[in-house]
């Protein structure tokens, strides 16, 4: 396995508030890693560090390539914005470049192929703003991946989706991970939708992280130590629930 991105002992503070506190983890090729934590645990800050938009106060970030495919949280595109799905994907190839773009058959073919592989071919010519949340996620994934980056990071892609679309997106990302040998870092505040597909988990609480397989991390003793507070991991008919309280019996 080859490491695509590795964070080692990363600290980030905003003013006097420490947002990330000694965070270490890595993502390998063809690996689907879930970044799990409550709102405010530091997920978006980790993404900003991985994307190179924020330099850590301490610690190191090592990348295989500079290029990272990124799907931000809550991309709001107005329904009347004059942007078709294929336009947004094409901007994933050269959207940062100044000057005129000449029409190119090769680029069009690449865009079509990318739309096809995320199951977005049928709405390629629709305005992005008029698509459903799940359809927009597919287009955003195509935008992120069309430049063939080794790493895809997705910030809370399931937050605004219904359960069915959420599951479909997770399945799509899991398939792309294996098919393309992609490294994926996907954040969520609820890990259950990811459990069947996640290779490893990075669990975040109050800026601290612990990573490993779900079996290693999602345990009452490990998470109690992370939270510095007694919590209990319950399995309710295959759904994992993390609850807290002094009286609970740690299994």
């Amino acid at each position: 396995m080859s490491t695509v991105v590795r964070l080692e002992d990363v600290d980030v503070s905003f003013g006097t508030r420490r947002v990330l506190d000694g965070v270490s983890f890595s993502v390998e090729r063809a690996e689907f890693v879930g970044l799990i934590g409550a709102n405010g645990a530091g997920k978006t800050t980790i993404f900003r560090v991985v994307l190179g938009l924020l330099s850590p106060d301490r610690g190191s970030v090592a990348h295989l390539g500079r290029h990272v495919g990124y799907v931000p949280q809550k991309v709001v595109i107005e329904p009347d914005a004059p942007l078709r799905a294929r336009d947004l994907v094409a901007l994933g190839i050269d959207g940062e470049r100044f000057g005129v773009r000449m029409p190119s058959r090769a680029r069009r073919a690449r865009v079509d192929e990318m739309l096809e592989s995320v199951g977005a071919a049928e709405f390629a010519d629709a305005r992005v703003g008029t698509l459903s949340g799940g359809e927009q996620q597919r287009v955003l994934i195509a935008h992120a991946l069309v430049g063939n980056p080794p790493l895809l990071v997705m910030d809370e892609p399931l937050a605004n989706l219904d359960i069915k679309s959420g599951h479909e997106i997770v399945e799509l990302v899991a398939r792309l991970t294996k098919e393309r040998g992609l490294a994926v870092l996907l954040s969520a505040h609820d890990m259950n939708a990811l459990l069947p597909h996640m290779d490893r988990v990075v669990y975040l609480a109050e800026g601290r992280a612990v990573s490993g397989t779900t079996g290693e991390v999602v345990r009452s003793d490990v998470l109690s130590e992370l939270y510095r507070y007694p919590v209990r991991v319950l399995d309710v008919d295959g759904t994992v629930v993390v609850v807290g309280g002094h009286d609970v019996q740690v299994r």
């Binding site: 949280q73 709001v76 595109i77 901007l91 959207g95 940062e96 470049r97 100044f98």
Partner: peptide, 14 residues
């Protein structure tokens, strides 16, 4: 054109 279009759609993506 392209950087402006992308940053108009989503400053985060841009």
């Amino acid at each position: 054109f392209r950087p402006l279009l992308l940053s108009s759609v989503s400053p985060d993506l841009a």
